[in-house]
Design a protein around this nucleic acid. Sequence first.
DNA 1: CACTAATTTATACGTACGTACAAATAAATT
DNA 2: AATTTATTTGTACGTACGTATAAATTAGTG
Lengths: 234, 234
Amino acid sequence: MRQQLRSLNVIPEPETARKPGRPKGGRSEQTRERILDAAEQLFADRGYDGASIRDVASVAGLQIHSVGYHFGPKEQLFDAVVARRADIMTALRREALEEAKQRAGDGAIPIMQLVRDYVSPFIQSASHGDVGWRNYAALMGRLANSPLGTEIIARHYDETARAYIAELQRALAGAEPEDVVDGFSAMVAAMLGICAATGRPERLSGRDGQRPPEDSFETLVRFHTAGFLALTSA
Amino acid sequence: MRQQLRSLNVIPEPETARKPGRPKGGRSEQTRERILDAAEQLFADRGYDGASIRDVASVAGLQIHSVGYHFGPKEQLFDAVVARRADIMTALRREALEEAKQRAGDGAIPIMQLVRDYVSPFIQSASHGDVGWRNYAALMGRLANSPLGTEIIARHYDETARAYIAELQRALAGAEPEDVVDGFSAMVAAMLGICAATGRPERLSGRDGQRPPEDSFETLVRFHTAGFLALTSA
DNA sequence: CACTAATTTATACGTACGTACAAATAAATT
DNA sequence: AATTTATTTGTACGTACGTATAAATTAGTG
């Protein structure tokens, strides 16, 4: 009876954040992380529509409704998966950019530095053994060219992207702004392609295992730095 | 009764190609094209799992089962969508490569020529107003970093990709083969990103409409040619 | 310990999916 | 014109989906 009443007046679901007063390592927090990990993996493997909430709950070792209880509808769960590590990634990039600005003083930040600072956090995270980050990187690659993905990426990544583009523009005096954006887009696309671990580079080169992403990272930096520099000589 | 008998002994569905003896512009052929067009658009917009066979039939103006009749299970329909234009794309690239080889004689083909020849057919097709090609380009972008997509792309595009990579390698004497493959992958990723028309470049540059893909194409050629050249100076 | 709130479980609903079968129609062939 | 084949239609099956409700359980608090 009590239960029933409670169930009728509800605004029952937290659906978003931990209640402020709750301990950080509490049961709820752990469950939320388990759900996010499972969703991250399944969304990366099968895409948004290919991964079901049932699968997520199953991988997380929970009943179906726990997922909805903690995150609400599917789209909110998806957004939470993206947001979790986007916040970390953005913080790292912001930090690197501030440091580079300090070092550059009044001058422009070197192109290679900007390329390195933007790409490095992502590739390092995706190659440092953490399966969560690897899944996240694959998921981002999948999202890049999809409508749903673009919308979410915009929300979580565009602001920092604009900050880097502004510095690139400053360093590439004389280059067309739209060329710089195209170059930046190319850089991001390459970064995501490397971390998506599709196996295509191996197939195209005849290699048997995946090339260490750190090696590809160095190549990417050289390659794209040269690309950006070529945009000044219109 | 007759019908019933026929229905029992069946191997009923063509599921694949036109019967050789049938006219090319016949009813069946037209229906198949309509289905492929509808599927192309829906797969591009919603992804493989997000697009249902029902939707495809509906957009094509047909009953559900007509789709299965002509193309069999969903995966075969998907493959047919990719294959249709992949064959055209591959032919154009092969042709351009042969021509470039002729022009180069015994020497290596210039890097810029190789970049141009590989990317041009795709971007030109995607920007020449044909909504079918635009949908196809968006679909390829979506596919690039997904497992299902990679498998299909490998089947339809890897052979020609390897031919271009071999020439790039020849032109970039001294560059590490794996660097060249990474550069090629970066080029393809950028090409797909441009044609995916996600709206992100506009958002990042403050532009209001999409930049003409031909303009982005010229930028891409300059950018990536310089990138490749930077791979020689190890 | 009692009690309240937070979380998890169990179950169910309505819908949409991919696929299949049998019948009806249209085209092609003889 | 008759008859066979190719194509389209109409309908149905079994399954899985996202979501919701209600009950049971766990944890925190006085």
